[in-house]
């Protein structure tokens, strides 16, 4: 049973980037905006966090830089889609292509740099409880933050006035506008939140998961985060289960490879991607469930009548 604690610990580190990015995207989508640029924002967050941490030595500054960089990227998306009413799908793809390019460009000076992994917030005494000590009390700040943000988002969407307004904007922008809410401003804020969270998700990869910079290091996690939002049927609580399930799958395939299971490594590496497809199919085939939970205005441009 010695393997179980390290296994759970790696699952947590593998799940956290997905959870952070998916939580942000969920809020963005709830406001009626579909930002497909998660992968690009994660990469930009990853390099911003890494570059700042490597040059200043401060992970705190790195994390802040990642959130700001993700936010700045999503601001470009928001300006194009919300102010200029560009197509959201195309703009999201542009964001990803741009993010891959600029992160590789900035990152080319940081390949091979080493930094200390994000320190764990070791809470004295209880951290030493066997098994649950290291799992529950020995994590780094972003792990706790990711779980806090899931809970906070759930509370925000169901228990606060602002959350209800956000959902109203996502479900019927015309009605929300008619009763006097500033649809565009609310969508800007939701999109920026999503950008910041994606940036943090990326930073988790480069600061804690690996910790290093490699070109395209997100390897599709931004897209998996998008699928997770559908999987969770736009409910934050279910994101937690979904993200940890995907974390499990990706760690299991790594373990299976190192345990010498006689399957070519490429087939094991396919598992997270295939699992995403399978999960997406299972959830999407329940049409009523999607219709009941998906924001009705998702991806649609809103132009206030003047």
């Amino acid at each position: 049973m010695d393997w179980i604690v390290p296994f759970i610990l790696t699952v947590i580190t593998a799940s956290t980037p997905l959870l952070l990015a998916a939580t942000g995207e969920l809020i963005t989508e709830k406001s009626g905006v579909l930002n497909l640029g998660v992968e690009g924002m994660m990469l930009i967050g990853a390099i911003a966090g890494f570059a700042i941490t490597a040059s200043t030595g401060s992970a705190t500054l790195g994390i802040m830089a990642a959130a700001l960089a993700g936010m700045a990227t999503s601001l470009v998306f928001a300006f194009l889609t919300l102010t200029l009413m560009a197509n959201q799908v195309a703009t999201g793809l542009a964001l990803t292509i741009f993010g891959v390019g600029i992160s590789a460009l900035v990152g080319s000076g940081f390949v091979g740099f080493a930094i200390d992994p994000l320190p764990a917030l070791n809470i004295p005494v209880i951290r030493d409880i066997p098994v649950i000590g290291p799992i529950l009390f020995g994590q780094d700040f972003l792990v706790y933050f990711s779980i806090f943000m899931v809970l906070a988002s759930g509370w925000f969407l169901t228990r606060t006035r602002a959350g209800l307004i956000l959902k109203a904007v996502g479900d019927s922008h015309d009605s929300a506008h008619a009763i006097g809410y500033n649809v565009i401003r609310i969508r800007y804020m939701a999109t920026l939140f999503g950008g910041a969270m994606s940036g943090l998700g990326g930073a988790y990869l480069s600061l804690a998961y690996t910790p290093m910079w490699a070109e395209n290091m997100t390897a599709g996690r931004g897209w998996i985060a998008l699928a997770l939002v559908v999987f969770a049927t736009w409910r934050p609580g279910r994101l937690l289960g979904g993200a940890y399930m995907f974390g499990c799958i990706s760690v299991l395939q790594l373990h299976a490879q190192s345990a010498g299971i006689n399957v070519p490594s490429q087939f094991m590496s396919m598992l997270p991607y295939l699992a995403t497809v399978v999960v997406l199919v299972i959830i999407s085939s329940d049409y009523t469930k999607i219709r009941l939970n998906a924001p009705a205005c998702i991806g649609k441009a809103f132009r206030p009548a003047q």
Binding site: G40, L80, V100, A104
Partner: peptide, 22 residues
Amino acid sequence: LPSAVTGLFQGILLFFLLACDV
């Protein structure tokens, strides 16, 4: 220059295109 400049240019071009399409 790193070869990533290509991707950067491509992304920026698409941004400008989408913006100009307005």
